[in-house]
Design a protein around this nucleic acid. Structure first.
Lengths: 269, 269
DNA sequence: GAGTGGTCTAGACCACGGA
DNA sequence: CCGTGGTCTAGACCACTCG
């Protein structure tokens, strides 16, 4: 018995092979918004443990191909949501554009880790304005703006979230913006963020940190976290719709056009 | 027995709590480059199954706090590597800057999915130049440049990778660049990329897609993938070193300064 | 070869969504 | 309420690194 031949290239983990098969199946037999069979059935169908199947689904979710919700099911996702970050510094000063929703506005001691980036003393007071980025009435990102009280001091202590936020933004607009510095990295959602994003804690997110400079010092620091599975950050001009279908936005109800089989690679029983 | 009291807020998954404890431990008792105890010991120490511990470690790795290597162990990671993407369009045309290494240069049919973005026919020929981004002699990213043969036609078929790549880049430099469009999203590493990055397939990566426009049409398309755990994308001016320690770069050998305890929250036996 | 992280299994229970 | 995905367990074996 020669050890040669008979053995294939293999060395490919089962979960990865499974992912590949699922990608093909999804692309050929499913359309955005359609539900997949449940995990137990899928695992059985492919002859793997549920944990292994879940590892494959996890990858597909991180790629933005699937969307899973506890209690509900697993559905095929539409194209990613473009988050326009423009080469220039809009995006903040200006709370207009719909699809954004104020969460709260507070004034408290700087979160420590951010003191250095904001250029303030360790426990200096800063205003914090949080808002939620929506897409198809689904939260996809949390944007958090920090402004040192030294920059915008005149904000009455007792004041509702909305008024407070509006006031800070108004004041901020009078500062001539010199420029900004921005970084993007991956992180995980803290429980609070996770809750706002309706995801379990530890969900992968894209963290965009923007530092706004005015009059030689840091006037504001924005820390925005976007769901890594559903968002794509767009700089400069947004990429045109590359790809085939002009159809198929984020899968909501009312988008099960070309069903097909019920998903199958093995025969049941 | 009233159901009130005695029960805590809980509702926090065990893996998340574990993550929190590990973060504190790492930050207070470890320094970059130091090794953690192995997974079996850690799991036992915290009284959880190895799978649960691994879920916590996974998160820490995604956050860039840990670095794990099969066969070797788990070590505390240093700060993330900044990948400068500058607001403007350098980065490509120009293979100088060290820390980058040519992988190969080929000419073949366009990968299908990219045809539209490149503005070429489905099976048109394109040049592909791949290079590796290094940091501390560790591959952290794969940058792949596609150039339609229609843009740079005169490249002899049989020619080594290096010469071919150099030729394409030289020609490209003669095209007056009009601008670019860029997007960032999360993806997973295909087996090939994973191999070049010395990671298992499916590793989370930051995918940067840049489209270069010249004379009204797409002159080149760059698709770069960076290890999500070790990289941070920097736009505009790089963020200055915010934080405390000016010390502690990526943990290589020769960086075990202030050891401490041997890690412990529970007593053994 | 010893020790490490990576993969996979089979089962259990929990928390949430929606009918 | 039932069905879904989310969490957790205990164990096994494999593939790699390094001394």
């Amino acid at each position: 018995m020669a050890t040669t031949a008979t053995v294939e290239v293999a060395a490919e983990p089962k979960y990865w092979h499974l992912r590949t098969v699922l990608v093909q199946t999804i692309e050929s037999e499913f359309t955005a918004g359609q539900s997949l069979p449940n995990e137990r059935d899928l695992a059985a169908r492919f002859g793997v443990a549920r944990a292994t199947l879940r590892q494959a689904l996890e990858q597909l979710e991180l790629e933005g191909r699937l969307s899973r919700r506890r209690g509900a099911g697993t559905v095929v996702a539409g194209p990613r949501v473009d988050i326009a970050l423009g080469t220039q510094g809009e995006g903040w000063p200006g709370i207009e554009l719909g699809d954004r929703q104020l969460v709260d506005g507070t004034t408290a001691a700087v979160p420590g880790r951010l003191a250095a980036q904001l250029g303030v003393r360790p426990r200096a007071m800063v205003h914090r304005i949080r808002r939620r980025q929506l897409s198809m009435r689904q939260a996809v990102g949390i944007e958090c703006l920090y402004v040192p009280r030294a920059i915008v001091p005149r904000v009455p202590e007792l004041l509702g979230d909305n008024r407070r936020a509006a006031l800070v933004l108004r004041h901020l607009r009078h500062h001539p913006l010199q420029g900004l510095t921005r970084s993007v990295e991956v992180g995980v959602a803290e429980p609070e963020e996770a809750r706002l994003l309706e995801r379990p804690p530890g969900t992968p997110v894209l963290v965009v940190t923007t530092s706004y400079t005015a009059q030689g010092r840091t006037a504001a620091l924005a820390v925005a976290t976007y769901r890594a599975d559903t968002c794509r950050l767009a700089f400069g001009d947004v990429l045109g719709d590359h790809g085939d279908a002009t159809e198929g936005r984020r899968g909501g109800p009312g988008a099960p056009p070309v069903p097909a089989m019920a998903m199958g690679t093995r025969s049941a029983s």
